[in-house]
């Protein structure tokens, strides 16, 4: 079974992002970029499926500027066999990404697509669901456990009230939650090996997809700042403040 994983290059989760002075976005020049953490989990899951003899080939796909090659090389070092970059400098929104991935899928015919539940830059939480819709496939979002069984998969999902388990037909799109697995570290020998693995480049035009943004970003601002409050000496002083100053109890 061929498994495809979608990986997005994002500002590293440890970076404290700064809004640009002109209000057009956040500062991304000279900022550390990494693979979206949820996508690392998606990739790890695919690699484990391969190690378990369920997956036969892992294809990593990223859409965005040429720098995404770096993210794809990381994917190859973690264990993907091949990579495809859909290269564009247009700011991609989830619907456009879903369309690009769909077009790649029509050529590649994977049985399972694993992706993150959410990109930590746009916090959209849409692309997987959209991709499943466009393909007419089943979807299992926010997965914390995936078990492949024959022509289906049993997926445990993290939902507001607890956990829910679904049985989905393959092919399917699964999106990962944080507790699905703990991604491995890339090792130097694997980074070396990754350099020799195939990385193909396509374009939205070649795939016949219009990626024009549907949402215009009018401005980006910093959220109102909370001011740090006071330290109090003990529980007694705290209760006094909560009762008489904040009047919250």
């Amino acid at each position: 079974m061929k498994v495809m994983v979608a990986v997005k290059r994002v500002v590293d989760f440890n970076v404290k992002v700064r809004v640009k002075g002109d209000g057009t976005g956040v500062e991304t020049a000279n900022v550390k970029m990494s693979m979206n953490p949820f996508d690392e989990i998606a990739l790890e899951e695919a690699v484990r499926l391969k190690e378990a003899g369920v997956a036969t080939e892992i294809l990593a796909v990223s859409c965005g500027p040429v720098a995404c090659q770096e993210t794809l090389r990381t994917a190859l070092a973690i264990g993907a066999d091949r990579a495809i970059l859909v290269q564009t400098d247009v700011e991609l929104q989830p619907l456009a990404v879903a369309k690009l991935l769909k077009s790649v899928i029509s050529k590649e015919q994977p049985k399972l697509v694993v992706m993150g539940k959410q990109a930590i830059d746009d916090d959209s939480n849409q692309t997987g669901q959209m991709l499943a819709a466009l393909l007419g496939w089943s979807q299992a979002t926010f997965a914390s456990k995936v078990k492949i069984a024959g022509e289906g998969a049993e997926v445990t999902r993290e939902v507001d009230g607890g956990l829910e388990t679904l049985s989905v037909k393959l092919p399917a799109v699964v999106t990962t939650d944080l507790r699905l697995n703990e991604p491995r570290y890339v090792t130097l020998p694997n980074i070396m090996k990754a350099k020799k693995k195939p990385l193909e480049t396509l374009t939205p035009d070649a795939l016949g997809v219009d990626v024009t943004p549907r949402l215009a970003i009018l401005k980006v601002v910093e959220p109102p700042k909370r001011k740090a409050g006071v330290k109090v000496a003990d529980a007694k002083a705290l209760v006094d403040k909560l009762r008489n100053e904040a009047k919250v109890i």
């Binding site: 930590i120 830059d121 916090d123």
Partner: peptide, 8 residues
């Protein structure tokens, strides 16, 4: 966006 560090 960005974990609430910016508002678009």
């Amino acid at each position: 966006i960005y974990a609430g560090n910016a508002l678009a």
